[in-house]
Amino acid sequence: MSVEQEKLLVVKDLATTFHTAGGDLPAVGGVSFDMERNQTIGIVGESGSGKTVLSRTIMGLQQRTNVTVTGSVLLSGFEMVGASEDDKRKRWGTEVAMIFQDPMTSLNPVMKVGKQIDETLRVRLGMSKVDAKARAIELLELVGIPSPQYRYDAYPGQLSGGMRQRVVIAIALACSPQLLLADEPTTGLDVTIQAQILNLLEELKERLEMSVVLVTHDLGVVATRTSRIIVMYAGRIVEIGSTREVFAGHRMPYTRALLESSPKVSNASHTRLTTIPGRPPNLLKLTDGCSFAPRCSYATDKCRVERPELQAADEPGHMFACWNPLPKTRRTVRK
């Protein structure tokens, strides 16, 4: 137990089920992993893989009545699942904070960005008006916004997408959280701006000694910036391990398919991509077997009726869920 309390985040058998008109939808279906302090991990998956729901559930944002959350999320030893709104609110901002894909949705369009940071500081940390403003400008500077005194009075609509995302990061960092959940933080942004934001996150992580969870569909985003990767498919973890191991020594066919189907800058032009047929399954109609089986070329009858659990690979911490794993050879990603 004491070992677990050391850890920043321990997720155990976490399941999030939405009750919809069409039936129960297991968006996250039994996920377990843990996370050390000062670490960056990546959660990768296609749409419908449950990566966004997972990060929101960790944050404790699911409160609608038609949702059931089971399992456990221990955040620095505190159980988030089933905690009261008050208890959760106390931890939001100081323990855990979140940034979203579209910065416009998390910013109030009719309020000056500086005031939005101020508010957090004054309400949460009880700062005085003057202190809060000074700190807000400091934060804007920290996230790399040029001439922060001037930008303090800007409205979100007057800023570019990249600048807005920086403001959102500043708000998230206002109360120095231990853990930052970043849900597709760069998806809507241009490549050069994306690189700026990712560098900023990495730099802030070092400087503020926090941990970051990067949730993304883009393998390129996590390849060089995380120490561990979780690959999700149809609401479950199908492979987890150190970034290097997942890229070079993956055992789960889906991981390979995902890697091989993404086009690479280093490919010659007109390179034919390896594809997986079909598309991710309908979560309302999941079978007892492996959810990837219908698209998998290695699938056997066993795969279709019995779901594989995560099993340990050779390298410590590397696990995969597959009945017919790929052989233990190290593959090079580069062609």
Binding site: G162, V191, N199, D218, G220, A223
Partner: peptide, 24 residues
């Protein structure tokens, strides 16, 4: 050159972030 430098390759061994283009 900067555009290509900012493109993220799905490869942990890819040269780690070259010079990043500043500004917007």
């Amino acid at each position: 050159k900067f555009l290509l430098g900012a493109a993220l390759e799905a490869d942990p061994d890819s040269p780690v972030h070259g010079e990043v283009l500043g500004g917007e």
